[in-house]
Design a protein around this nucleic acid. Structure first.
Lengths: 118, 118
DNA sequence: CAGGTCTATCGATGGCTGTCAATGTTAATA
DNA sequence: TATTAACATTGACAGCCATCGATAGACCTG
């Protein structure tokens, strides 16, 4: 956790994927999309990683600073970050040797919308 | 899907379990609780089951009416309903031979809160 | 009581997943 | 170029999970 550069900008917005669960009947396709996103949140290590990143005052966190607080090995943390990124909840940007991760607020908002009424 | 009785009342409210992910750092214990709840939503069949139940005009659905639309065997549907019930997202009530399932709006609201900012 | 219906449970199975050690890859530095 | 640091990928393994057929239990009806 040595050579750092600048944090990255806030990522672009993500459109809501599906109709709200409590608003209308969810199609099989929509259900599959939603299930994948919720699956990304179905691990306590990933929840904590996302929490750390989303609450960072700079808006982005170097991967090197996530290994120790996560309490897992470096490959395992890298794996979890990849899952969160592929679910659209995180973006990553390489800056020199470091990899900076930022949350995607719109993606969380999209999931919130799926749990809402109307 | 024959012998039916009356639907059940709306279930009691569920208190929010954890601090919002985007509001403060989530502890390991909170992360585990949240992860379990999100895991209940990490399957497309369960998403659709929850959607069907939460959108029912009567507020409750007989399990017998969920097997065919779920597209899974009766034991599989029973298993998924159990997962949703144990996650606090559904309640069940036996009425004669039938088992009626109802959504727990406060539980969904609790998950929404975990994804909110502030 | 006998028979039928609804639902949960059991046992088995194939696939997925979290984890780590080892290795590969990329980039900065001497 | 050689070395070091940061990070991803691979391979392996154990545990979990979705699924179904078979079965059991509960309940109504005749």
């Amino acid at each position: 956790m040595v050579r750092k550069l600048l944090p990255l900008d806030q990522p672009a917005a993500a459109a809501p994927c599906c109709a709200p669960i409590r608003d209308a009947l969810v199609s099989t396709r929509e259900a599959t999309t939603l299930a994948k996103q919720f699956a990304a949140l179905s691990d306590p290590v990933r929840i904590r990683l996302l929490s750390m990143i989303a609450n960072d005052p700079d808006g982005a966190v170097c991967a090197c600073d996530l290994v120790e607080p996560a309490g897992r090995s470096q490959p395992t943390v890298s794996h979890h970050l990849k899952v969160l990124r592929e679910a659209g909840l995180l973006t990553s940007e390489r800056r020199g040797v470091n990899n900076w991760y930022a949350a995607v607020p719109a993606a969380l908002e999209s999931l919130r919308a799926a749990l809402s009424t109307g």
